[in-house]
């Protein structure tokens, strides 16, 4: 039995901006259970007294001087654009009709 429902998968897929076919939603609903099992095991040892490590090496204060470097040439900037116009990236209308 899967604990993560199809609805949950659909909600998360929308959040992640990935259109899924119904069969993909079905399959993922089953496969995502792996995460629930993982978290159950991890909880055995991830107790409040254990600090979190977000980073393998404890570095701090890595700063850059406020000195400009050459920008990318604009033709390089736009070279990969699926669509462009007047030196800018052309993207589909941003919101749906209301």
């Amino acid at each position: 039995m899967s604990t993560i429902s199809r609805d949950e998968v659909a909600r998360v897929a929308a959040l992640a901006r990935i259109d899924l076919r119904p069969d993909e939603v079905d399959r993922l609903a089953g496969e995502l259970d792996v995460i629930v099992e993982s978290i159950a095991r991890v909880s055995e040892v991830a107790t409040p007294d254990v600090p979190a490590t977000s980073h393998p090496l404890p570095l701090t204060n890595v700063f850059r001087d406020d000195v400009p470097e050459l920008a990318l040439p604009v033709q390089d900037v736009l070279a990969g654009a699926p669509q462009q116009k007047n030196g800018r990236f052309a993207v589909p209308q941003i919101l749906g009709e209301e």
Binding site: V77, K85, N86, F89, A90, V91, Q93, I94, L95
Partner: peptide, 19 residues
């Protein structure tokens, strides 16, 4: 936003982005 009657976000047909 380009193509919309108001020039605002709604009704625009497409947008041009400058980063």
């Amino acid at each position: 936003h380009v193509g919309g009657s108001t020039g605002r976000i709604h009704g625009a047909e497409y947008s041009l982005v400058d980063y």
